[in-house]
Design a binder for these strands. Sequence first.
RNA 1: GUGGGUGUAGCUCAGUUGGUUAGAGCAUCUGAUUGUGGUUCAGAGGGCCGAGGGUUCGAAUCCCUCCAUUCACCCCA
Length: 420
Amino acid sequence: MKAKYAALRGTRDLLPDEIGRWLYLENRVRDVFGRYRFQEIRTPVLEATELFARSVGESTDIVHKEMYTLKRGDESVSLRPENTASVVRAFVQHSLHRSLAEGFPARYYYIGPMFRYERPQKGRQRQFHQIGAEVLGSADPLCDAETMEMLCRFLDELGITDRELVLNSLGDPDCRVRYRAALVDWLQPRRANLCEDCRRKSADNPLRVFDCKVEPDQALLADAPEILSFLGDEAAAHLDQVRALLDRYGIAYRIDPRMVRGLDYYQRTVFEVVASGLGSQNAILGGGRYDGLVRDLGGPEVPGFGFAIGMERLIALMPQDRSVAGDADLVLVCLGQEGLDGGVNLARRLRSAGLKVAMPMAVRPMGVQMRRAGRTGAPFALFVGTQELAEGRFGLKNLETGQQETVDEHELFIRLGVKT
RNA sequence: GUGGGUGUAGCUCAGUUGGUUAGAGCAUCUGAUUGUGGUUCAGAGGGCCGAGGGUUCGAAUCCCUCCAUUCACCCCA
């Protein structure tokens, strides 16, 4: 049979076989982030288009050509391409800054789908999922460093150890303006030697030329001016302190003065973590500081720091055994119509006690039931037939050892660890 | 948007220079076993060979178009 409908390009179904890995990951997020007192926040998937244009930046590809935008009358709304803007919007809308105290920033995290209209490839989907967090209300280098320290702990606990933390500073806005001018001056006489894309980028968004993968361009750009030598005193001091703190945490990192992140709102610290084995899309998370964003979105002067993690990319890297099992605690093997009838009542009591109970919904041969029980991975099978129901005693078989004993209902609960 | 790869059973894949009725493994189902599994054995179901057109006596195979998918570019998590 040929399927008439299929999931849209760039979207996909997460089938039950796969969902255990997602639940495992989400559990780790809530555990690790919870230790740092991050609180979950959920914002709408749909927001005013203008919110993203203002925050992510009009000139970025994300806003320019990757948003799913809907128009209803004269209102324009978009599916979120990222979630920082929404969190900041919520923060401002609900006046959450009013409960901030100096040195005690608000910390939020989120888990959910994002949407970007791109050509799918390895590690890139149109609907993808991010884990992210935002710290609002601290401009201190400690905030940057501790957040990165949490991320390293998180990745360690997931078993993702083959990775690299890459760090850079984009400076304050005025540093960036001076650097940009210097870079444009440097690029101008060399434009003829650059590839077509880089010639275009040197006009639109000059910092992006550093992303170029063309060899001759790379060689040429090796001598280009670097942002780090344009940092003002405060931005430079900030970076130095972040580095000192990372050293104190014992966290390894590499400074890459040419790493430029895609969203316009970043300033000072930017970072990403790259891993091998993901093909061309090797960044598993990225983030940075955005001290002007809250103000730009109509709020007070509140500094911010945040990151986003690509869940699909993370799951691809997680060791195979990282999953939560959805197996039944007990399988009822119901013999004949009487067994099935009695099983219904028994299952009801067992489920009331909190157990995960499987049973057939039709009279089936025992051999078939046992074959399926063996494959579900359930630890126990309970035989429910006419005689057992009459006596109130059932055969309880340990499916791993093959050992069987006869128990009444009270003993059954004890065997299965239910407090009675 | 631009390039390359791939589309055969539910899944992973064979399929000879174009040749008659398209195969395997896994999975599913039935039986051996109408009350003891995950082993074994025997058997069964399951295919518009991505879609449409063309070449040919004859096409899963060659050509064209479209669609899907995948990798890469752009860009990003």
